[in-house]
């Protein structure tokens, strides 16, 4: 059975190197390539030119281990999010957070209903992450989940 990571293999990276190791710059290039592919894919789906894309992202440090960006849920305000690639990346997923929603989040939370933190646990418990998965797949699989579901859920509950 094909899994999402098989179908969206073009969002994955070939190089398996952690931050700080030799060859990390190659991985960063592949990450950018995959993100570009994701943008092209989304633009194709939306038949748009990128102006309606739901996210933007850029690295904020030279080694590209800290990333920041904006997510734009439809008809809602924009939120800034951050990604941190630990030294254990890509074996562990990026650590992501939406600072404006941090008061609803907690590292200890793990349940499906109140899993309010933007959490790598979601992915770890799904056992789908592997070292070829990159930021692009994380955006598609995890951050988009927040944009499509969690933020609306929080809004519906009157929490934000």
């Amino acid at each position: 059975m094909k899994k999402e990571e098989d179908l969206f293999y073009f969002l994955q990276c070939s190089t398996v190197v952690s931050p700080g190791e030799k060859g990390w710059d190659m991985r960063v290039k592949e990450e950018k390539y995959a993100l570009l592919k994701l943008m092209e894919y989304l633009d194709y789906l939306e038949k748009g030119d990128g102006s309606r894309r739901w996210f933007s992202i850029r690295p904020t440090d030279e080694s590209a281990t800290r990333w920041t960006g904006i997510i734009s849920p439809p008809k809602r305000q924009d939120y800034e999010f951050t990604l941190i690639l630990k030294n254990s990346y890509p074996f562990t997923p990026p650590a992501a957070s939406i600072p404006a929603l941090m008061k609803y989040t907690d590292r200890k939370l793990e349940d499906e209903v109140l899993g309010l933190r933007l959490c790598d646990m979601h992915m770890e418990s799904n056992y789908w992450w592997n070292e070829h998965c990159g930021i692009a797949l994380y955006m598609k699989r995890e951050i988009s989940y927040w944009v499509q579901a969690i933020i609306f859920d929080l809004d519906k509950k009157g929490w934000i």
Binding site: Y9, G23, K29, K32, Y33, L36
Partner: peptide, 21 residues
């Protein structure tokens, strides 16, 4: 960095993609 199950774009393509990104 060794071979990979996931094919890797050529260096030129990667450089170009990084620039565009």
């Amino acid at each position: 960095t060794g071979k990979s199950r996931i094919p890797r774009p050529s260096p030129d393509v990667l450089d170009r993609a990084a620039r565009i990104f």
